[in-house]
């Protein structure tokens, strides 16, 4: 099982270690706190964009209410992620709490696209292992970055593209599993609109809201046509 989990999460390793390192370096150079607070944040918060925003909020000594609201808004997209996993996580008991806690963009992508054939217990164990592996990579990156500070020697510029490449691969896998291009075009259109209309900080959540609204609309239209067809049949 462990080699399988490692192979499955390897792209996340390449994405999370550099991204976590970036956060750690930012933390060490912008703030005057002990280095181990960076990996500690990775352990208890575990959110990439959230932690990077947290550095600037800490530097500005922001009020706690402002911090709370900023984090809710920035992470609002996570509300939609749970929708696809309600059934999968059912009956996972205490494991479910950790699975929900660890539901980052990347973990969500892996958990919703990976093949599932085993018993619910087995699948829950695998889900936890994937989530845990990803968090280890993230915390590791936070620690490396905070320890190295500015003295990074290996030129890793561009390695974070691994995450984009992972999303591309997962989108292709989703397309093959569904046999339909429609949701892909809806996602692309929502992203295009968000990029054109919204400031960078709101593009991700804006696009997710738009595409969810579009899927709701599509559901309603489909249901109405089925109802009309049934009515005509009678």
């Amino acid at each position: 099982m462990i080699p399988n989990i490692f192979r499955l999460t390897l792209p996340i390793l390449f994405g999370y270690v550099p991204l976590g390192t970036a956060f750690g370096v930012l933390f060490a150079t912008q703030l005057d706190y002990a280095w181990w607070l960076a990996p500690l944040m990775g352990v208890v918060i575990y959110a990439g964009a959230g932690q990077i925003l947290a550095v600037s909020l800490l530097a500005a000594h922001a009020g706690l209410l402002e911090v709370f609201v900023a984090m809710l808004v920035l992470n609002a997209r996570h509300v939609f992620y749970g929708l696809s996993l309600l059934r999968q996580f059912r009956g996972a008991g205490l494991k479910k709490l950790y699975l929900i806690f660890g539901l980052t963009d990347e973990t969500y992508s892996l958990l919703t696209t990976r093949p599932r054939g085993g018993s619910p217990q087995e699948e829950h164990r695998t889900d936890v292992a994937i989530t845990f592996a990803n968090q280890i990579y993230w915390v590791l990156g936070c620690a490396i970055g905070a320890l190295l500070g500015r003295s990074v020697e290996f030129d890793s510029t561009g390695i974070e593209f691994a995450l984009v490449a992972l999303f591309i691969v997962l989108a292709i896998e989703q397309f093959k599993a569904l046999g339909s291009q429609k949701p892909l075009w809806m996602g692309a259109a929502a992203a295009g609109l968000a990029l054109a209309l919204l400031p960078p900080a709101q593009q991700l959540i804006g696009a997710i809201v738009m595409v969810t609204a579009a899927l709701l609309l599509q559901y309603n239209l489909q249901r109405n046509t089925t109802l009309t067809r049934e009515a005509n049949h009678d």
């Binding site: 929708l83 969500y108 929502a190 968000a194 990029l195 991700l204």
Partner: peptide, 26 residues
């Protein structure tokens, strides 16, 4: 059925919009 509809199609749509938005930033 509404939540099942979202659960089935949302991941593909979200994956594509993540690709576009992160590609745009890269």
């Amino acid at each position: 059925p509404l939540l099942q509809h979202l659960g089935q199609f949302l991941p593909a749509a979200v994956m594509t919009l993540l690709v576009i938005i992160f590609l745009h930033r890269s």
